[in-house]
Design a protein around this nucleic acid. Structure first.
Lengths: 227, 227
DNA sequence: ACGTCAGATGATGTGCACAACAGGCGGGTG
DNA sequence: CACCCGCCTGTTGTGCACATCATCTGACGT
């Protein structure tokens, strides 16, 4: 599991910002893993009780999720998990196709042995999925893979924006799988092959190849999804 | 003046979201125009009084500004306008250089006569600056030019991210000018020439040329800034 | 039977008082 | 004189009560 952008447990007591980031990532993961499917109504009081805080700080989390396009709040109605229009989904994918090239060409930090070992571990998880297929485990793996590859660039703004775009549409693929519109086993096969190819290119230091492989994978993945 | 992302005055009464966007854009402009220079302490109570609201909704605005990297809030200390590290500034510019190419190649909407007339008006403002140089007016013109050219792409996520990046660093250039590290007249001359070239390319329908001209302008502008 | 409207209900948005925290000031002490 | 500790002040963070809004319900009138 990749630590994401949540600050790890530090020595001192948890500050307000730590709680905020933790709860934000938590709810975001629930949305991306479809525990809160599109249209689900999120109750501020219930979530506040669950996290042991008041509505005030929780509303700040929901406000950020709204900025990120994951929920929408309507006065007097409620806070609902957003659905994604077909056109916007296509726009996000077209943009992500371009950004992955930048992730391996802009301010790149060459991978070291430790990094390669981490990617090998991810490959092992991909291989393991073949014998024990699980849509959620696949989704989690894809997220970790994405965050790991994002470390290749040292460009902070590029990292931030790529993350936002990724989490904006990550749940759609999972939704299509659960609706049986995508063959899970086939996707896992393709994915494992892609991870293997990426690892190979990383070992050779050919980051440009990594970018173009990811680009084509995103393109094909999108094509299979809307099929 | 370009309307920006603030919803215009609609028929009904102002909703909460309208107030929020209005105040957000207002404070953001003050920061970008250096009315609140880096390091300035923003008082929540004072701002709340000025806008005639309570601290609660104002804090939501400040939270968003903090997400966008324009301010930082520290518990018990205050909310200060951020300064920009040299390294981060360079990262933003490197990324923006790539994004401007996408703005004229991804989901582009060909400009019509009305659009061309608006760019002509912008060119007129640039020419007018030659006889009445003003750093703030120049800064405002650059913002309007940026937002106008951003309309060339219909890709909403690309628009959103480009905006965030632009407003993240827009004040730095103005800061360098007021510190007399940049020659204002020379910048205005260069800028007017660039707008003229862009307008020419737009009339010819050569959007690719527009992108590359903007890219080189950003590159040169950054080089002059850090000189 | 059907349309209408007042009231109930539950949600988000707002205002306000207090808690938590950091920094500055000043007196006490070795 | 230097250092330390406690108080004071100003700021952000939190909890809570209320305002505002949209939706549903059901009684009423036609």
């Amino acid at each position: 599991m990749v630590d994401d952008d949540v600050t790890e447990t530090r020595d001192g007591p948890l500050t307000a910002r730590d709680r905020f980031d933790r709860i934000h990532a938590d709810i975001r993961n629930r949305i991306c893993l479809l525990e809160y499917p599109p249209g689900e109504k999120l109750s501020e009081v219930e979530l506040a009780e669950e996290f042991g805080i008041s509505r005030t700080p929780l509303r700040r989390v929901l406000a950020r999720l709204e900025d990120e396009g994951l929920v929408t709040s309507v006065h007097g109605v409620g806070t609902m998990v957003t659905d994604i229009e077909m056109e916007e989904l296509a726009q996000v994918y077209r943009l992500r196709k371009e950004l992955v090239l930048l992730q391996t060409s802009l301010d790149v930090a060459p991978p070291d042995a430790v990094y390669l070992a981490r990617v090998e571990a991810l490959l092992a998880r991909a291989e393991a999925l073949k014998t024990a297929p699980s849509a959620k485990a696949f989704s989690t793996l894809d997220r970790d893979m994405f965050l790991t590859l994002l470390e290749l660039t040292a460009n902070t703004p590029l990292r931030t924006m790529s993350k936002r775009l990724y989490f904006r549409t990550a749940r759609i693929w999972l939704q299509q799988v659960t609706a049986s519109k995508i063959d899970l086993m086939q996707e896992i096969e393709v994915y494992a092959r892609e991870v293997r190819d990426i690892l190979e290119a990383l070992k050779l230091g050919d980051l440009d190849a990594v970018g173009h492989m990811r680009r084509s994978h995103i393109s094909l993945s999108f094509a299979r999804m809307i099929k």
